[in-house]
C-alpha cells in the first residue's frame, strides 16, 4: 500500500460561530477534499459538560469526518494529542474498510471480522498511523473570550509537536487564527516540521464578537495547497479507471 499524507484541520474554539456560512457545511466540503476536521471546544471553569453554544462542536467534527471533544483548559494538552491521534486512526480505518469492501465485497467492515483477523488488520492500521506523513493545520479562535486561554493553547500545541514528532512518519504544522484583521483567517505560523518555532505571542486579539468559523474552515482548506487538492483528485480518478 502506498503511504499518503494525512491531512487534518484542528479547530480550537470556545464558542459558537455567528458569521458566514454554516461551519458544518464547510467541514463537509473539506472532508470531501480528503481533509479531516477535528474540533476541540474549550469549556469555561464554571460551565457544565453540555453547555449552550458548543453543540456546534460535535456537528462540525461529524460532518468533517473527524473527532470532537469538549474539555476544560487544564486537560487541553492531553486532549489535543488524543484527538489528533484518534482522528488519524479513524481515517486510516476508513481507508482499510474501503479496501476490505473491495476485497470481500458486501458491506464488510473491520467490526464484522472475527477478533483474530481484526487484530491483524488493526496492526496494519497502527503501522500506517505510525509511519504515514501528517499535515495539521491548527485553526485557533482568537475572539475576545479566548484571551485567557491562549497561553494554555500554546502549551498544548508544543506538546502536540512533541508527541507527533516522536512518530516515525514526517509532520508539517501550520497555525492560523480567526477572525483575521482583514481576511477571514491570518497566518500565525507557516508550514513547518516543528511547533517550537512558534512565535512567542499570538497576534493581537481582535475585539468584538465576530466568530466566522465557517469561512475560516473554508479558507484553511485552501492552505493545504491547490497542488495537493489536484493530486488527490487525480488519484481518485486513477482509482476509478482501475475499477472500471
Amino acid at each position: 500500500m502506498k503511504k499518503g499524507t494525512l491531512k487534518q484541520i484542528l479547530l480550537i474554539t470556545d464558542g459558537c460561530s455567528n458569521k458566514g456560512e454554516d461551519p458544518a457545511a464547510t467541514a463537509a466540503l473539506a472532508y470531501q477534499q480528503g481533509i479531516t476536521v477535528n474540533v476541540i471546544g474549550i469549556l469555561e471553569d464554571d460551565q457544565t459538560e453540555d453547555p449552550e453554544g458548543l453543540q456546534e462542536v460535535e456537528e462540525i467534527a461529524l460532518s468533517g469526518g473527524g473527532v470532537s471533544q469538549l474539555v476544560y483548559k487544564q486537560a487541553l494538552s492531553q486532549t489535543v494529542q488524543m484527538v489528533t491521534k484518534q482522528a488519524m486512526t479513524q481515517t486510516l480505518q476508513g481507508f482499510v474498510n474501503m479496501e476490505l469492501k473491495q476485497i470481500l465485497g458486501k458491506e464488510q467492515t473491520i467490526e464484522d471480522l472475527d477478533p483474530e483477523k481484526r487484530g491483524e488488520i488493526m496492526e496494519v492500521v497502527e503501522d500506517l498511523g505510525e509511519t504515514s506523513d501528517l499535515e495539521v493545520l491548527v485553526l485557533i479562535d482568537t475572539s475576545a473570550s479566548m484571551h485567557d486561554k491562549l497561553p494554555t493553547v500554546k502549551e498544548a500545541l508544543m506538546d502536540l509537536s512533541i508527541s507527533l514528532n516522536s512518530r516515525v512518519g514526517r509532520n508539517r504544522f501550520a497555525i492560523y487564527n480567526f477572525p483575521g484583521k482583514r481576511k477571514d483567517i491570518d497566518k500565525v505560523l507557516d508550514w513547518s516540521p516543528k511547533l517550537d518555532s512558534m512565535s512567542s505571542v499570538f497576534p493581537k486579539l481582535t475585539s468584538g464578537g465576530i466568530t466566522p468559523t465557517g469561512p475560516a474552515i473554508r479558507e484553511a482548506m485552501y492552505q493545504f495547497g491547490k497542488k495537493s487538492l489536484l493530486r488527490s483528485f487525480r488519484k481518485d480518478h486513477e482509482q476509478d479507471v482501475e475499477n472500471a
Binding site: Q78, D159, S166, V168
Partner: peptide
Amino acid sequence: GRAIKEYTEFYDRGYWGLGSRK
C-alpha cells in the same frame, strides 16, 4: 522506536521537558 501510545502527564518525560515521547 515508535511514538508512545498512551501516557499520563506526571509520569511523562515529554511533559517535564526531559525528552521525547519516542
